[in-house]
Write a protein that binds this DNA or RNA. Structure first.
Length: 559
RNA sequence: AGGGCUGUAGCCAAGCGGUAAGGCAUCUGGUUUUGAUCCAGUGUACCGCAGGUUCGAAUCCUGCCAGCCCUGCCA
């Protein structure tokens, strides 16, 4: 496509799943598209889920279909209401809507039971009294076929009675299960008479104590899809083998003998450098108190990233940039960072913050502090102007001063060298005070009063620009500088992933921000010029605490 | 010979028999009161390897190699 042609049509993602949908629609296999996002409420959503959410809800939007939010709540022992709440919040925050109330697999427990009975009646399921260990032995292994359970040939009538007893609580946990009768010699391990129902005397967050038998994922998921009229059931690669069971269940039930029943397609899950994506590991970080909680800004969770300052738009853009495929991949952090910078650069108001302050005294400025106007966004006048202050005493960043410029390319403040104070005047370093350790405490400067909004009249070239905050109006603030959570690209590969945590993943600094930020809103992004994108922490109330979302792109420090 | 998948530039990823899109990263210029942004330019990809079919193969066939997944009454 020519570059000129690009602006004509809205560009939609291209991937193998959308290709399949296009074909299905063209062949009128379906008249509309229905997808679903089916989290188990046993943890918080992370950026990997966001990929799936954007895929499923994105398809629904583009094809004028719908995407159900469905809680896959078939295992009450691991699930909790806390998670069903947080999951809904995160999906909403990302900007997606599901039709009506959220769905629950547990809504269909009665139907699942009836379908199980149908399988039993067809001689395709049986109650098995082998214990867990025996079941494992009977299953065989990757090289050798399994052998039939001694309960495999129980009569239909007896199985019906036994299953009814399972439901009415006459068997103990672990005493028996309902199994599908498929093929103990199948090369797909999941087809060696998989368990369909197990006994659990557990209180369920949705169904209370109504049930003491709960369906397994492989039985419940395809049926939930079928009941909801899902057309394309999208999941990750590790379920490729399970697809045979998904198909087996639907193919053996009368209700799904139709060409427009759901079909499963698998795509690769997201792996991001320098972080972990498994719920188990994230749980561990939280439980071991290695992070502040699920919403710690260093966590790859939606709530953590939100607190860190990521926007819904940036996460959706990220999902689009990485695409969908079946390749096992490891995505560079750079893609995520580029996506946030792209969004924030456009929408974030500019401000100045001094993160590691040293004092500057302007010796030839004796007056009271003065007010200056600065653009909220230099490339977008419609965002208006803001008030900043300039006076005799200022703060600048420690990194922006050195006594002697190291070379001609140095663009910051040095003695006997001029530099521009962003949005204000040109100043020149005169001398500096140091503490006992030799660290700069104060830099004494002069300013050129005729340089506000213009270059020096005599044509002097001033190359560098540094930021500052006027001391008497400065607002003390805490800055939390975040870095990658782990020191290695793929911590999941480590024997002990917690041993490769980055000790500098959080560095706290105390400095100053412009007075205009006094009532800044939590999560509102700002660009602290020359430093990066920050937002007010959403957990610290009135305290001036700013989280660094991401630093500005830096093409120079490495040289 | 257990089975299921995957291999296109440093990373992600289009392509589906007609002679390799795009994004990120990199590098080079230009603009700039953010060393940012923006603009322009920048790539020898043995299309995993080896054969074969074809006028023509990343695309079809065969054989190899490498990586991931599968033996929960988890999802």
């Amino acid at each position: 496509m020519s570059k000129a042609g690009k602006s004509e049509a809205v560009e939609r993602p291209v991937n193998f799943i959308r290709n399949i949908i296009d074909e299905d629609l063209a062949k009128h296999k379906y008249e509309s598209v229905r997808t679903r996002f089916p989290p188990e409420p046993n943890g918080y959503l992370h950026i990997g889920h966001a990929k799936s959410i954007c895929l499923n809800f994105g398809i629904a939007e583009d094809y004028d279909g719908a995407c159900n939010l469905r809680f896959d709540d078939t295992n009450p022992a691991k699930e909790d209401l806390e998670y069903v709440d947080s999951i809904q919040q995160d999906v909403c925050w990302l900007g997606f809507k599901w039709p009506g109330e959220p769905c629950y697999s547990s809504n269909y427990f009665d139907q699942f039971y009836a379908y199980a009975v149908e399988l039993i009646e067809k001689g395709l399921a049986y109650v098995c009294f082998l214990n867990a260990e025996e079941t494992r032995e009977y299953r065989g292994n990757l090289k050798e076929p399994g052998k039939d359970s001694p309960y495999r040939d129980t009569s239909v009538e007896e199985n019906l009675a036994l299953f009814e007893k399972m439901r009415s609580g006459e068997f103990k946990e672990g005493e028996c299960v309902l199994r599908a009768k498929i093929d103990m010699a199948s090369s797909f391990m999941c087809m060696r008479d998989p368990t369909l129902y197990r006994v659990r005397f557990a209180h369920h967050h949705q169904t209370g104590d109504k049930w003491c038998i709960y369906p397994m994922y492989d039985f419940a998921h395809c049926l939930s899809d079928g009941i909801e009229g899902v057309t394309h059931s999208l999941c990750t690669l590790e379920f490729q083998d399970n697809r045979r069971l998904y198909d087996w269940v639907l193919d053996n039930l009368n209700d799904f003998q139709k060409p427009d029943r759901p079909f499963q397609y698998e795509f690769s899950r997201l792996n991001l450098e320098y972080t972990v994506m498994s719920k188990r590991k994230l749980h561990q970080l939280v439980d071991d108190k290695l992070v502040e909680g699920w919403n710690d800004p260093r966590m790859p969770t939606i709530s953590g990233m939100r607190r860190r300052g990521y926007t819904p738009a940036s996460i959706r853009d990220f999902a689009e940039r990485i695409g969908i495929s079946k390749v096992d991949s490891m995505t560079e952090m750079g893609i995520l960072e580029a996506a946030v910078r792209d969004d924030l650069n456009k929408v974030a108001p500019r401000s100045m913050a001094v993160i590691d302050p040293i004092k500057v005294v302007i010796e030839n400025y004796q007056d009271e502090p003065q007010t200056l106007m600065a653009p909220v966004h230099p490339q977008n006048e419609t965002m208006g102007k803001r008030e900043i202050f300039f006076g005799r005493e200022l703060y600048i960043d420690r990194a922006d001063f050195t006594e002697v410029a190291p070379n001609g390319k140095y663009m910051r403040l040095a003695l006997d060298k001029e530099v521009r104070l962003r949005n204000a005047y040109v100043i020149k370093g005169l001398r500096a005070d140091y503490d006992a350790d030799g660290n700069v405490t104060t830099v004494y400067c002069s300013y050129d009063p005729d340089t506000h909004g213009k270059n020096p009249a005599d044509g002097r070239k001033v190359k560098g620009v540094i930021h500052f905050v006027e001391a008497s109006h400065a607002l003390p603030a805490e800055f939390r500088l975040y870095d990658r959570l782990f020191t290695v690209e793929n911590p999941a590969k480590e024997e002990d992933f917690e041993s490769v945590l980055n000790p500098e993943s959080l560095v706290v600094k105390y400095g100053f921000v412009e007075p205009g930020l006094l009532n800044s809103a939590a999560e509102q992004a700002y660009q602290f010029e020359r430093e990066g994108y920050f937002c007010r922490d959403n957990q610290c109330g009135d305290k001036q605490v700013y989280n660094r979302t991401v630093a500005l792109r830096d093409t120079w420090s490495s040289r």
